[in-house]
Structure formats: C-alpha cells, structure tokens
Computed example of a mutant assay.
Amino acid sequence: MKLTDKLSFDHEDRRDLYEYVESHGTVKRKEVEQALKMDPRAVRHHVAILKRDGYLTDDDGVLKVAFEDEGAAEEHVSDEVEFVIRQAHQSDLSGLIGAIRHVADEGTYIEAEEVADILDHEEVLLRHNELESRMFFVATVDEDVVGWVHIRVPELEKLHHTAELTVGVLAEYRDHDVGSHLLERGVNWAKQNGYEKLYNSVPATNEGAIKFLEKHGWETEAVREAHYKIDDDYVDEVMMAVSL
C-alpha cells in the first residue's frame, strides 16, 4: 500500500481493526481480539480481507500495516564503512529516536527535535491514516541506526503534491556518503509516489545542512528572520525546497 492510496473500508470492523494496528505499529492478532472484543474467527476473516486488499501483513499472527517498500534494502560501502539503507521497522523505534536526539542535541536542527518528540509521544514509526501519513528510511551499521530520512505528507488536499523531508546522520558517519544515499532514497520514494515538491527548514546557523541540500539541488525559497531562539540568540529560519 502506498501513502498516496485512499483508505476505503466496506465494513466498520475492518476499519476498526486497521486503525488499531496502524496506531500501534506491530501487534499480535490475540491482542487485537482482546482490545476490540472481536471473535477470533471474525478477526481472522477481516485480517484475510485486509491482507488481500493490501492493507495489512500477517506474519504468523503478528500484524502490521503493509507499506509498499518493505523488502527493499540497499547495501553500500564508502571509505571502508559498510551501511544499509532500508525502510524503517517498528523495532527501530528506540534506535531511531536516539539517533534523531543526538543530531537534534547539536542545537541546529529544530525540525528533527519535533520529529523525535512526536515519535516519543506516539511510539509508532510509519503512519497512514485519514489525518496523517509518514515514511521513514534508516541507515544502519551492524543493525544500529546511524541516520534517517523522514517524509511527512500533508493531508490537506491542496498540498497533496508536496511533502516535508528531514534527513540526518550521526556526526561520526557524515563523511561517508550516508546522508547522500539517505536523501536519494527519500527523494526517489517521493518521485515514485507522485510528489512534485519537497521542502525542509533549518536554522541559518546550520551551514553544513544548507550546503548539503544545495549540493543536491535544493534552493532557498525564503528566510524568516529571527524565527528561532537558540541559546538566547535569535536565528533566521532558512526555508528550502526542491522540485521533483
């Protein structure tokens, strides 16, 4: 299922079941039966239809939303560093939040702080419901998350051609092309899903991020003066975007 797909259910119980799984990330079928007070046979029936229609996957009784890029993983080697770029799994949650927090603690990526706060609150990585949709890809070294790219899709119909992208890499991996491969994966995903424009905002003090995005074709659309207050200093917000 793609994030651009409209959700459509012909049975209220199937909608409830999907929404429960979507809001929890990964759940056991038994948990769904208990939480929704559904007969096990009815749950199996609804799961089978949701699986057939591409909404859910069922791995020996473990349910999760069926996102279309689940199996695609890319292996890379750069300057003797081996890393993998793949779609994030729910099991990556704590490692991903940790990586985002490390980057955000540098004080120059406010959008990353917001992403980490949302993940901490919701405890779910990938979302696709009637109010919000988001996708994460991660870079891993020996299964440890060292970077991410996050695409958030506005639900307002007039903005459906756009998406917000954030990308970050732990400091020790920034000279190994990890960020470039993550950004490429996120941009390619957005293109394949029909988005026409990506945007991102960073403080003007984050010169490294601005140069990185410019190197990959992003342009500054606007600057909001004194938009951030970092360590008692007022800092401009640089609003950047790229057309796909």
Rank of each mutant, 00 (worst) to 15 (best):
E219N: 10
A139V: 06
H46R: 11
H161E: 06
E123K: 15
G168A: 03
G179S: 02
I100D: 10
M38W: 00
A72S: 10
D92S: 04
A226V: 02
R127S: 13
I210E: 06
A48Y: 00
A99V: 12
D231K: 14
S8V: 12
Y195M: 08
E221S: 07
E225Q: 12
P203Q: 07
E157A: 10
V153I: 14
Q90S: 04
L93D: 01
H128F: 09
Y195I: 00
H227G: 03
Y195H: 14
S91Y: 10
R101I: 12
A35S: 10
V223F: 09
E157C: 01
H161C: 01
K197P: 04
H76I: 00
N200P: 00
G61A: 02
R86S: 00
G107P: 05
E74V: 09
G186S: 06
H176T: 08
T220R: 09
V77T: 15
I151P: 05
A99F: 05
S23K: 13
H176K: 08
L17N: 00
A171R: 15
K215L: 08
S180R: 10
S23W: 02
V138W: 00
G71D: 13
A241R: 06
F83K: 11
E113L: 12
R29I: 10
E225L: 05
V81K: 09
V178S: 00
K197T: 09
N206C: 07
K197S: 11
D175V: 06
E237Q: 14
G186V: 05
R101T: 14
H121R: 15
S201G: 10
I110L: 12
V178I: 03
I110N: 08
T108R: 15
L183A: 04
R86T: 01
V238F: 05
V187A: 11
G54V: 06
A171P: 10
G194P: 08
Y195A: 00
D175M: 09
E122M: 08
A35R: 09
E82G: 11
H24N: 15
L156A: 13
D60S: 09
D5H: 12
L126R: 14
G168W: 08
R41P: 01
D59S: 07
E33S: 04
A42K: 10
E31Y: 03
R44I: 01
K211A: 15
V21C: 06
V153D: 06
E114C: 07
V43P: 01
L36I: 04
V146Q: 07
A99W: 03
E214V: 03
D5T: 12
V115Y: 06
L156P: 00
D236G: 03
G179T: 03
D10H: 13
D175R: 15
Y109V: 13
L183C: 05
I210W: 04
D231I: 02
Q192R: 11
G179E: 01
